[in-house]
Simulated scan of single mutants.
Amino acid sequence: MPTYQYACNDCGEQLEVVQKFTDDALTVCPGCQGNLRKVFSAVGIVFKGSGFYKTDNRSSSTAPAASPSASASSKPAEGKSSDSGSSTTPAAAPAPAAAPN
Rank of each mutant, 00 (worst) to 15 (best):
M1N: 05
P2S: 10
T3K: 08
Y4V: 00
Y4P: 00
Q5L: 12
Q5W: 03
Y6C: 03
Y6F: 15
A7R: 08
A7G: 04
A7W: 00
A7M: 06
C8S: 02
C8R: 01
C8T: 02
C8F: 01
N9W: 06
N9L: 14
D10E: 14
C11R: 02
G12T: 02
G12F: 02
E13Q: 06
E13L: 04
E13H: 07
E13Y: 04
Q14T: 06
Q14A: 03
Q14V: 09
E16K: 06
E16H: 05
E16C: 05
V17P: 00
V17H: 00
V18K: 12
Q19D: 10
Q19K: 14
F21C: 01
F21D: 11
F21W: 08
T22C: 10
D23F: 01
D23I: 01
D23N: 05
D24V: 06
A25E: 10
L26K: 03
L26A: 02
L26C: 01
T27K: 13
T27E: 15
C29Y: 00
P30E: 04
G31N: 13
Q33E: 15
G34L: 01
L36R: 01
V39G: 00
F40Y: 13
F40I: 09
S41T: 14
S41F: 11
V43S: 09
G44Y: 09
G44I: 14
I45E: 09
V46R: 12
F47P: 02
F47E: 15
K48R: 12
K48G: 14
S50M: 11
S50E: 15
S50D: 15
S50K: 08
G51F: 05
F52Q: 09
F52P: 02
F52W: 15
Y53P: 00
Y53V: 09
K54Q: 12
D56E: 07
N57E: 15
N57G: 15
R58G: 15
R58Y: 14
S59N: 13
S59E: 11
S59L: 07
S59A: 10
S60C: 11
S60W: 11
S60M: 13
S61P: 00
T62N: 08
A63M: 14
A63G: 05
A65Y: 12
A65E: 12
A65F: 14
A66D: 07
A66V: 08
A66H: 08
S67A: 07
S67D: 02
P68V: 07
P68E: 11
S69C: 08
S69E: 15
A70M: 10
A70S: 13
A70N: 08
S71V: 12
S71D: 06
S71K: 08
S71G: 04
A77H: 07
E78V: 10
E78G: 11
E78L: 10
E78K: 14
G79D: 01
G79R: 01
K80E: 12
K80C: 09
K80H: 10
K80Y: 11
S81A: 07
S81F: 02
D83Q: 09
S84Y: 04
S84T: 03
S84F: 04
S84H: 04
S87L: 13
S87V: 12
T88M: 08
T89R: 06
P90N: 03
A91M: 04
A91W: 01
A95S: 14
A95F: 06
A95G: 09
P96M: 06
P96W: 00
A98N: 11
A99H: 11
P100G: 02
N101K: 15
N101H: 11
